[in-house]
Amino acid sequence: FYGSHPWHWYFTQGLPVILGTHLPFFIHGCVLAPKRYRVFLLTVIWTLLVYSTLSHKEFRFIYPVLPLCMVFCGYSLKHLKAWKKPAASFLLLSNLIPALYTGLIHQRGTLDVMSHIQQLCNNSEHSQAFVFIVMPCHSTPFYSHVHCPLKMRFLQCPPDLTGNESYIDEADAFYSNPLGWLNKEFYNDTLLPSHLILFNVLEQEISSFLALRGYEKTATVFHTHLPQGRVGSHIYIYRRKTDTNY
């Protein structure tokens, strides 16, 4: 349902990625470690082999082997002698800086935008509001971050359980023709959402819909310095201009 990878993916990409800058120390430790540590290495290899039999693979599936890998990294550092402090400093900086960037800055917009949506709950007219998140499915949290019965919707991408080879989920159908999809879905003004949430890369493509249906941009939220594909650098919040604004 959710994609597949070649059998060797955990060995060629999965483990190297989650080890990151620890990888050379892990390899060095595996070479130096005495035989009594071999059981840890065999456990790591066995785990990777078992998970490699599954077609769907994810980094998080092999996180449990990281503590065992750190045993070998530690053994490597122990035997570096004069290079021990420089190596430890390298590991600290090479992990701390990316951790701070990815944890505090990178792709934070999909969380920050929920604070804007939550503010609608403080409005007495929130029962009339309708928020449509026009982004790749599951881009944002949902009611875990919005604590009121606010009407919300996002593009769906459920797996096909019917065996239909021509099956296209709602998100893919939308992105194949965003403007046409919106005009067809909201053929009547009474169906229109009061708020639209979208990545900036989509704005130009649906600009005529936004203008004709009376939407105005009310907020811009930073998301990432590294936009890619359907994911933009910023998130825009559009509100439909009516007699009563929410």
Rank of each mutant, 00 (worst) to 15 (best):
F174C: 04
K184Q: 11
L196Q: 06
L161N: 04
H234C: 09
H223L: 02
I235H: 01
S233T: 09
V134S: 14
L68G: 00
F174Y: 06
W181L: 12
C137N: 11
L96H: 07
L150P: 04
L91E: 06
Y10T: 01
S52G: 13
Q119N: 15
R240E: 07
Y101H: 11
D169Q: 14
W83R: 08
R38I: 08
V231T: 13
N188D: 15
L191H: 08
P141D: 11
E205M: 05
D243F: 11
R60S: 13
V146H: 04
L48S: 00
F40D: 04
K35V: 15
L155Y: 01
G14I: 02
T242G: 15
K151A: 10
L161A: 07
P158F: 07
L48K: 00
Q118T: 09
F142M: 05
T140P: 02
N122A: 14
L23I: 03
L111H: 05
F90C: 14
F130D: 10
T21W: 07
A99Y: 01
G109D: 03
V146G: 03
T140V: 06
H56Q: 13
F130A: 12
V131D: 01
V201K: 06
V113Q: 02
I62D: 00
L155G: 00
S4D: 05
H234N: 14
F222G: 02
S115D: 11
E58S: 07
T224E: 09
T12A: 01
Y101T: 06
M114Q: 01
V31N: 12
Y167P: 10
E125M: 14
L212W: 06
C73H: 05
K78R: 15
F26R: 01
P67K: 02
H28L: 13
P6S: 00
T218W: 04
A129F: 06
Y10F: 11
F72Y: 10
R60L: 11
V146A: 05
P16Q: 03
V201N: 09
H138T: 05
L161H: 05
Y238E: 02
Q156P: 03
K184V: 03
Y246F: 15
N177G: 14
S115W: 07
S208T: 14
F40T: 04
V131S: 03
H138K: 06
T190E: 11
E125N: 14
H8Y: 05
E58W: 03
P86R: 15
F142L: 07
T242M: 15
Y10S: 01
E216Q: 08
L32V: 04
Q128S: 11
R153K: 15
I117N: 03
P141H: 12
H223C: 01
S194C: 14
E203T: 10
H195N: 10
D112M: 13
P227C: 10
G14N: 04
